[in-house]
Nucleic acid binder design. Sequence first.
RNA 1: GCCCCCAUAGUUCAAGGGAUAGAACAAGAGUUUCCUAAACUCUAGAUGCAGGUUCGAGUCCUGCUGGGGGCACCA
Length: 593
Amino acid sequence: MENTLKATIAKAFQALYNTEIKAEDLSLQSTRKEFKGDFTFVVFPYLRFSKKKPEQTANEIGEFLKTKITEIIGFNTIKGFLNIELSSSYWLNEFNKIINTQNYGLATPSSKPTIMIEYSSPNTNKPLHLGHVRNNLVGYSVAEILKASGHKLLKVNLINDRGIHICKSMLAWEKWGNGETPESTNTKGDHLVGKYYVRFDKELKKEIATLIAQGKSQEEAEKEAPLMQQVQAMLRQWETGDAATLALWNKMNAWVYKGFDETYKRLGVDFDKIYHESETYLLGKTIVIKGLEKGIFYKAEDNSVWCDLTNDGFDKKILLRSDGTSVYMTQDIGTAVQRFEEFDLDRLIYVVGNEQIYHFKVLFKILEKLGYTWAKKMYHLSYGMVELPFGKMKSREGTVVDADDLLTEMEAQAKAISKALGKLENYTEEQANDTFYKIAISALKYFILKVAPVKTMLFNPAESIDFNGNTGPFILYTFVRIKSLLKKSELENSLPKSVETGIAAQETELKLIQLISTYPAIVQQAADDFNHAAIANYIYELVKEYNHFYHQITILKETNQQLKQFRLLLSQKVSQTIESGMKLLGINLPERM
RNA sequence: GCCCCCAUAGUUCAAGGGAUAGAACAAGAGUUUCCUAAACUCUAGAUGCAGGUUCGAGUCCUGCUGGGGGCACCA
């Protein structure tokens, strides 16, 4: 219909004002809800062709459209806005098309090229906190949205399993651990390792304070602290492949992986491939050396290798240390090359926090300088920090919101509310717990994903477990109410495949059809913008409109069978659209709550 | 010092250059002989400042203010 309207408007310009305008250059928008109409055409930009007043121009075009398109039952013009009103039979006909479309709103799977998306990328020295949760949820959701838009997706995780940070936990465990294990302490492995990371930091600070008291400067003290010296020695031992160090490293990392797996499972995220930094950190060196030979990079007097980006708006960037070892950038160059060699990728998306914007700009620029044409296919999907009402999250200081604790707390809250409302009677304990989990995880995911990725967001733990308002549980509630309605109707599986387009549909019903009809475009837009918040906001709008409908319109007691069936079909399609959209956010829905 | 991002009701978030800037929470007032009241209805309340571009600016440009982040032989 939008295309028909545009084509006809173009014809109107030809017929009325003798002006050639391409139909695809015209833009239509949905009429805002405070005005009557379905689609709106803004005439202001075209007044130079009509040479008439806005309202007159709009009226003339409106009249032209009305005579050409039978579905138009009327129009109104307010200033330069032409609001086109379509008949209810048009919308009911649209509805019939929609309910007979398989996987409505989703493009054919794998009909578009492959996209690789890297997300999560945790360090193995501490458990996941709220910042990681945002990363995981954003990465997973964007992957689902891109899949829905037709792309084939490769979800990958690069685990940062080596370096000084994990050595800190290892050293602290050796010194003060007394052989503790996850089993002996009944602690998740990542939490146990994190405990020693915090311990290391605490002990190091003590040493530094002592040295400063003895007259050293801050800088000297940090360098000379015995713990610092020891941990650096440990990293060197790791790099030379010292058996005992590697054994400890393997043992503690295994604890962490087991813990991460539990958290990933609980968050409902997964990966098609996992990379470990311990296996990739040497990559890139030969590429850098080749670049050096080609004169793209240069060597400093001390033998360190650099890339001069001062003509590209960046600084100079070191690529190999004077001792010949790699840095973070070197590794990223290597893994990028490896990935494009291994897979035929249309895009490579990195979901990484916005503190690394500069790093990725430099990475992409260096790859471009090296002559890789695929460098322009790389994209850094950055997201803002998660802030807390009481200050910053610092894992070394223990001021974090731990991912596992948060989920547990939210499940308890869901349970308390359900109990207080007397819901879920005659559910088994297992069924009830599954429902509490679904409610809690929906609250967390929706809370985070309704905010656009670029924004720094504030996470208030007290408010986040409030299940009223624009929240996941609010959407879940609407969904289960529809489920209950369909069940009670006893017609769920015997509804017709179409409705009579002559029935008297109410305004709220037509509004719902209209909203559902925009779903495919919303999915596409969200995919183009990598923006899960567009999906979240859309579902919320749909749910609000449905709740309005639900309160205003009688369904099961409607005596007109055609109307009753239509309302049930409409409810069913709304529930399916909610389910489809929520799946793109990684949220599964319960049957009852 | 240089660079990047953000700035919208008391608070947390919306708004593909378009109309009277939407919600939610918090505040106040209502709605259950009726399909799940975790709902619905109503009231009050906002574009940091100064210019510019445009028929039209929360949105684009410039400057300023405020907040965050980045500029390591760390990752």
